[in-house]
Design a protein around this nucleic acid. Structure first.
Lengths: 92, 92
DNA sequence: TAAAAATACTCCATAGGTATTTTAT
DNA sequence: ATAAAATACCTATGGAGTATTTTTA
């Protein structure tokens, strides 16, 4: 799983729209659609209920969203820690 | 960042060796070497001190290892939650 | 000198794009 | 009819391999 793809899915969840997520990410709608589908195939579960015009997350989608946000937090912590280390080395 | 690549780095950290990690992962030494280097380029920081035969993590490497393990835990939680959901739906 | 890591290639899978088709209001 | 998602097709990047070179104890 590529963490970028997790962020794509999170963006889709946020906007409840592939098209809006694609614009927000400056990527094509096609790319977002395919990446989310590949995530679903990788996890072997449907993440999004596409039966209506306004899409919504499935229960599995809600789980992936919640855990995905935790992962994004960890990545943010990682950046912060590396940044702190860098400043420490510079003697700041 | 691909989560697979994080696991490769974690494996290198565990064995303190590219070669042993590659064997443990059933991948070539070349692949591990290149993936770790690409991780370093992506984060713009050296993760491994290669100046000795027995490699060791840099301070930044220790940070990435710690945060990487947290991310792996989140992914494990994700699997568990999806599995629980699946059983719930089956009425188990 | 022997081990381990880095590098030079080659190949293939896939992320990404554009254009088009399908679907749901 | 229209807006959104899916799909067909194409390209380029980079992950993976094997073989070889470089490096360090």
């Amino acid at each position: 799983m590529d963490i970028r793809h997790l962020t794509y899915f999170i963006e889709v969840a946020k906007y409840k729209s592939f098209t809006k997520a694609s614009k927000s990410l400056s990527l094509s709608q096609s790319t977002i659609s395919k990446v989310v589908k590949s995530l679903e195939e990788e996890l072997n579960v449907e993440l999004i209920d596409r039966s209506a015009k306004k899409i919504k997350l499935t229960d599995a989608g809600e789980i992936v969203l919640a855990e995905g946000e935790i992962i994004m937090e960890s990545l943010n912590d990682l950046s912060i820690h590396l940044y702190d280390l860098m400043n420490l080395k510079k003697g700041k």
